[in-house]
Simulated assay, not measured.
Amino acid sequence: MTSAGGVFPETGGDAALYIDPYSVAEMRNALERVLGSESLRRTMAEKGRKYALNFREEAWFPNLWAAYTKALG
């Protein structure tokens, strides 16, 4: 569970619940959903593990290297 907007959707992907950080009702609803559902917690954990693979060096470095190579010509 994290804030909607900013960098959070990029870092959480489809593994997180996004809420308005100024809405107590949304926070409560999200907490109740996560705490009340073992299957939701398992699904979120599995999606989180898979999504985290996008942040390994092997996943992003080739594109970064190609951009530097192109920029430096």
Score class of each variant (00 low, 15 high):
Y22S: 06
A67P: 02
A16T: 09
V34W: 07
K47M: 09
V7D: 11
S23N: 05
G12K: 03
Y22K: 15
F55Y: 08
S3H: 10
T69K: 14
R56E: 09
F55Q: 04
I19C: 09
P9T: 03
L53T: 13
E26K: 04
K70F: 02
M1E: 07
E57L: 12
P21K: 08
G36A: 08
I19V: 15
G13H: 02
M1T: 09
T43A: 15
E26G: 02
P62N: 08
E58A: 14
F61D: 02
P62D: 00
D14N: 13
S23C: 08
K70S: 08
I19E: 03
E57Y: 13
E32V: 14
A25T: 14
P21A: 03
A59N: 12
V7G: 12
G6I: 00
T69W: 11
V34E: 04
P62A: 03
A30E: 07
G73M: 09
A25F: 15
L64C: 02
G13N: 04
P9H: 05
A52E: 12
A30C: 07
F55L: 02
A59L: 11
I19A: 04
S37H: 03
N63G: 14
A25R: 15
G5P: 05
Y22T: 11
R28T: 11
T2R: 15
A4E: 01
Y51I: 01
A71D: 14
Y68R: 06
E26A: 10
G13V: 01
Y22M: 12
K47S: 05
K50R: 14
T69M: 02
R49D: 00
E38K: 15
A4D: 03
N54K: 11
P9C: 02
T69H: 07
A45F: 07
A30K: 09
M27H: 06
V24Q: 13
R42H: 13
G73S: 11
L17Y: 04
S23F: 07
R33V: 07
A71V: 13
A66P: 04
G48I: 00
E26T: 03
G36R: 12
A25L: 15
L35V: 09
L35H: 11
S39T: 15
E46C: 01
A45N: 05
R41T: 07
K70N: 03
E26P: 01
Y22F: 12
E26H: 09
E58M: 04
R56D: 04
F55T: 01
G13R: 05
E46W: 06
D20F: 02
R49L: 06
E58H: 07
A25H: 14
A45L: 10
E38R: 15
E38P: 10
A71M: 14
G12C: 04
D20W: 01
R41M: 05
R28C: 10
D14F: 01
A71C: 13
R41Q: 12
E57P: 05
E57Q: 10
A67F: 13
G36T: 10
